[in-house]
Design a binder for these strands. Structure first.
Lengths: 141, 141
DNA sequence: ATCTTTGCAAAAGTTTTGCATATCC
DNA sequence: GGATATGCAAAACTTTTGCAAAGAT
């Protein structure tokens, strides 16, 4: 699983006939700068910092566009708003119930093996999975 | 982990000074009849079948009440509405992306061991986790 | 009688849709 | 020109809140 650069994602989209608008470029750059999870509100703030004006409709639509193409994926923590992250570089999260700190869980072969186990036991063809852990971080516990 | 009956849950609540209203009784009976996941809309339909009239506010409030007491828990599949299930009898789900079939994943010691591993690796005190698998069921794949 | 629970209406919050306009190639 | 992308306003949905009334013990 290679880690993509914002530039390569954008280039590929352009090749496919899609346009490199400032909103698209900004969002891809933000989401591929690191592996953090962003709400739509956060994405809009970050776009503003880049001096990119974009309506929330545009942000929702662009995120949808990027999800349909498997570039971005969404994660839900159960607080009512979805969070988005780059879809390559697959990993999972621990969320602190007190301070909302989100950290990645280091890659774990055992974690990934589970998909096969579950497939064998249920007969489902597993396309994706979501593992989230909730607890107290080192400072809060 | 014992599997509770609706009656025992209700009895305990009564002991604690809470009232056994028809809405409370109906919701606990519905949620403890099996281990399926229910949206608020579904809960309201099921209440109606039991000839129990309850406002959606009441259902939301009652679910909140039951969650605060650890009787019910919520699970998110990412489709915008929360689903609720009995909190005892812990297990996980596979969801079919095509027909929305939800099945339980058979108990798996390896699955549960992960919580400890994650705790060790991140330093978090893990309070709960959520594992959901999405794919195609036997009929749809 | 008292504390719990309810219903109704309204509000809040996130996400989606319609449509006309603008933009890129 | 023709497809893609955008903004604005309005709608759609789920969930929450305020408050007065009703219900349970």
């Amino acid at each position: 699983m290679t880690t993509l650069s914002a530039a390569s994602v954008l280039e590929k989209l352009q090749t496919q006939g899609f346009r490199l608008t400032t909103a698209r470029r900004g969002l891809v750059e933000i989401l591929f700068a690191d592996d953090s999870l962003r709400t739509v509100a956060e994405l809009m703030t970050l776009l503003k910092k880049k001096r990119i004006a974009a309506d929330k409709t545009t942000v929702y639509r662009e995120i949808g566009f990027l999800m349909e193409r498997g570039i971005v994926r969404d994660v839900e923590f159960g607080d009512g708003q979805k969070r988005y992250e780059r879809a390559d570089d697959h990993h999972h999260h621990v969320v602190c119930a007190k301070c909302d700190l989100v950290e990645d869980i280091p890659a774990d072969a055992e974690l990934e093996r589970l998909e096969k186990r579950v497939s064998e036991r249920t007969g489902f063809t597993i396309l994706k999975h979501s593992f989230e852990f909730f607890g107290l971080c080192r400072k809060c516990s």
